[in-house]
Design a protein around this nucleic acid. Structure first.
Lengths: 203, 203
DNA sequence: AGAGTAATGTTGTCAGTGACAACATAGAAT
DNA sequence: ATTCTATGTTGTCACTGACAACATTACTCT
């Protein structure tokens, strides 16, 4: 016989996969990657301890899935910025860097995860392919900017390293709570803009 | 009755603390922070599973102790570079940045640990104090370099962020295995020198 | 509509781990 | 020599990831 009243705890959750991801992101942001436990997530959500396995075979798979989602959105945003009309390669480079830093600040959990050795170690090939796609897009733009006259006398690889370092560093400072202990004062988006503006200038 | 032959496995290890640290560093470098397990370390070394607790009350304490040791040596090296005679503040800044990147490349495990959110979260106040000492030394040098004419028109905080980001980023690229997937080719010390030389130039 | 199948959730279990307590041993101090 | 303290061992507990066997729901095909 069917219930006429709503069942308070239905057998099936509805969107457990999404719920796991959302809760995991919360935990990463508040307590760190280490604190993510499949059983604790299940408890928080209100399902049995083994339910998560239907969606993510291992804990690493869950974290890697979140990281992958992050890289995908980042790559999409970068692709857009790199294909904007009426922009020089140099302007595109700057836009990509700004986009990266802004993305890290907006999604600190995703950023932490893609920076986490233990997570990336268990990531599948596609994730690494996407990360490489981002790097190659970057590299190609640098080459073009150099062809258009920007720092054309410098070694492309060195320039790539420099841009990668500066961008990654800014993303770190923008999203990593560790820096909040060390940094005197808050990091403002305007500062990032000013730093990148200076770096990606014609001079 | 006493043995006249050497006991192959003495009751006391001799220097278990050191052995734990050494083995933990190896594991961090080869398998990542996550793979460090007190019980596994004990097994590898050949002591009982609870022996490590005499030296480090928790797993976090062990990792934090290694991180602290790292920051201490880093700070010592930075202090030396900052007090070198016959160097302008700008040259000292450059030397500090180079020292940091070289340190990260030489001690990747230590660098990973001080960058690890989960480790630093459980670190004691003294560790944070040392990290702050490093930052304040940095800041003071920037102020002096500006007083001596370098980028004197720029905001000190923004400059601090920029240097921190560039240095941290280079250290990441120099020591983090993740970048080996993305980077086309190896990172050479010469490149780091060229990047920092350009950045810390009078021009 | 109804049967059969796939997807999803549950219960039970196992080995590995961190942490703790109680006990054992060796070396140092008096 | 006796006692004390540092260090190591054994035993145990709760928690976790992973897996297997089973239950329930949703979906599909006719």
């Amino acid at each position: 016989m069917k219930h006429t009243t709503k069942n308070p705890t239905p057998y099936h959750h509805g969107d457990l996969r999404r719920a796991l991801i959302d809760r995991a992101i919360e935990v990463v942001e508040t307590e760190g990657v280490e604190a993510v436990s499949l059983r604790a997530l299940a408890r928080d959500i209100g399902v049995s301890h083994a339910a998560p396995i239907r969606h993510f075979p291992t804990r690493s798979a869950l974290l890697a899935a979140i990281a992958k989602r992050g890289i995908t959105t980042l790559l999409a945003s970068a692709g857009q910025r790199a294909n904007e009309h009426g922009m020089s390669s140099l302007e595109k480079l700057r836009s990509m860097a700004e986009g990266y830093v802004a993305w890290a600040a907006e999604y600190p959990a995703h950023h932490m995860l893609i920076r986490n050795q233990d997570v990336m170690r268990h990531a599948d090939d596609e994730l690494h392919r996407e990360a490489n796609a981002y790097a190659r897009l970057h590299e190609e733009l640098i080459r073009q900017a150099q062809a258009e006259g920007w720092r054309s006398d410098q070694n492309t690889h060195t320039l790539f390293v420099e841009i990668t370092a500066l961008t990654s560093g800014l993303a770190l400072v923008a999203s990593d709570p560790i820096y909040r202990t060390v940094l005197p004062g808050q990091l403002h988006a305007k500062e990032v803009g000013s730093i990148l503006g200076r770096f990606f200038s014609e001079a």
